[in-house]
Amino acid sequence: MEYSQITQFIVDQNVPAQTLALLLLLPVVATLASFFRQVVGIKAFGIYTPSIITFALLAFNPNGLKYGIVIFISVIFIGMVTRYALRRARLLYLPRVAITLSVISFSMLGVLIIGGSLNRTGLAGVSIFPLLIMITITEKFVAVQLEKGTKVALILAAETLGISLVGYVLISWQAFILFILAYPWTVLLTIPLNILLGKWTGLRLSEYVRFSRILSQK
């Protein structure tokens, strides 16, 4: 593999190339999320959640993408169902989220057991950290659900998954990773790019749709 001098230097200091690549890719994924928010108008759960989900999806590799998506969707679904189940109990916020997390944990365990018994080794082989990350997005989901309702929370969850998938496609693209490792300084370009995004006052693409009735007037 062709490394640039600086990359070679870093690797020589016993920093795993994998770690270096991920650290360099994080700004790219974060910039992607900010682009989706400011220009496209896709909100998602902020910037942290789509970024971390992107890396979680990557960690399900190889061939684990479908499991990642299935786990994401089932976590959201179980979180939603649990909320309805707990509605009548009138619990305070944190205990309620704690119960939700417990239910999801047990459900995931169940999913792993069923997967194993069906010889879905890909599922059983999933490492624990991406799985935990997936589970903890429940808190985000429940918080939004409480403040803005289930519908909004579902839309935001779908948007999060969408951005994460785009991010996943980008950072699992071998040529792109090699390019970043060959020219690590290009990652610095995300800073001026984000300054531009941070000053962007034009309408978001989603707003062209939202305000289409005003925009299409004669």
């Binding site: 108008g41 000053k199 962007w200 006052t201 309408l203 978001r204 925009l215």
Partner: peptide
């Protein structure tokens, strides 16, 4: 053309936050 003209009349989220 009308769309572009009108898009300058509408206040979007970005402009609301940054300019106002």
């Amino acid at each position: 053309f009308a769309l572009l003209k009108h898009s300058r009349e509408v206040l979007g989220m970005n402009a609301r936050n940054l300019e106002y």
